[in-house]
Write a protein that binds this DNA or RNA. Sequence first.
DNA 1: TACAACAGTGCAACAATGTTGCAAAATAAT
DNA 2: ATTATTTTGCAACATTGTTGCACTGTTGTA
Lengths: 139, 139
Amino acid sequence: MHSKITDTLKKHQLSVTDSRKKILSFFLQSGNALAHADIEHKSGTEFDRVTIYRTLQTFVEKGIIHTIPTADNSIRYALCKDECVEGHHHDDHVHFICDECGTTYCLDHVSVPKVKLPKGFKAAQTDLVVSGTCNNCEK
Amino acid sequence: MHSKITDTLKKHQLSVTDSRKKILSFFLQSGNALAHADIEHKSGTEFDRVTIYRTLQTFVEKGIIHTIPTADNSIRYALCKDECVEGHHHDDHVHFICDECGTTYCLDHVSVPKVKLPKGFKAAQTDLVVSGTCNNCEK
DNA sequence: TACAACAGTGCAACAATGTTGCAAAATAAT
DNA sequence: ATTATTTTGCAACATTGTTGCACTGTTGTA
C-alpha cells in the first residue's frame, strides 16, 4: 500500500526520501503557494537549507510544482495540476496574491486570456498575477 | 534651459543629483527594462551599490519607474508612462521577457484584459507577463 | 553669491538568500 | 544482503539587499 505522497514521487521518477515526502506534504496541506522561507519555517531544523533549495528545484524540473512570478523578490511555488510533466508545464491559470495576508492562491478556474503580441514576438508562456484583497481579508 | 532628464526629476519633486541623472538616462537610452545588476554594470564604480538601490526605490515611489514581476529572482524596472504619479501607478500594459536574450519589453499597446475573480477577491493590480522569443531573436 | 537647512551619498557592517564541492548516509536495484 | 546510485548535510563561498552614520552636495532664501 502506498500513500498519495509516495505515489506522486514515484510517478515522477523520484526516489522517496524524508525531505521530499515532508516538503510535498506541506504543499498538499496548505493548498496555497509557498516560498522557500515558508518551508524553512515549517520544517524547523529538520532539513538543511540546501536540501530545501534542491528539493524545490527538483520538484519544478519534474513538474510537481511551478513557480509564480511576483513583483517583490520572492519566488513562490505551488502544486501543478496533473497535466504537468517533466519539462513541460501547463499552468495557464491566474494567480492571486493578497496584499493583506500575503497568501498566494492559484485560481484554477480563471484561465489566462490569449494576448495578441506585436509582429515577431512568440509567446512560450503567459503569466497573469493579480494582487489585491482576498476573500479572507475583506469583510 | 533644462534637459529632459532634469525636468523629469524636478517634476517628481526630486533633487537633481549625478546618480539620479545618470540612472534615469540609462532607462531613457535603453528603452527596455533594466535590473539592478544591469545598472551596476553600466555605471561601473561610479556610484555605490547602495545608492543604486536607494535611487531605484525612490524612482518607484515617485512613479518614474515601475517593477515587473518575474519568475526568476530578479526584479526589473522600466520607465512609467506619464500618467504615473507618486503612490499611484497606471501600468496596465503587458510585459514581454525574451528567453533567448533576456530583454524585457513593455508592450505599451497591448493592454491587460480584465479578469473575473471569484467572490470576495478584490483586484488592486493586474500584471501580465509573457515570455518567449522576441522579434530580434527569432528569424 | 553666500549661507543655512535639508536631502542624498559613500562607507562599513550586517542580514538574507542562493550556490558549489565533497564526504557520509540513505535509497534503489540486483 | 550487497553493490551501485542518489540524496543529504556540512562548510565555504557568492550574490543580493538593508541599516546607521558621518560627510557631501543640493536647494531655497536673503
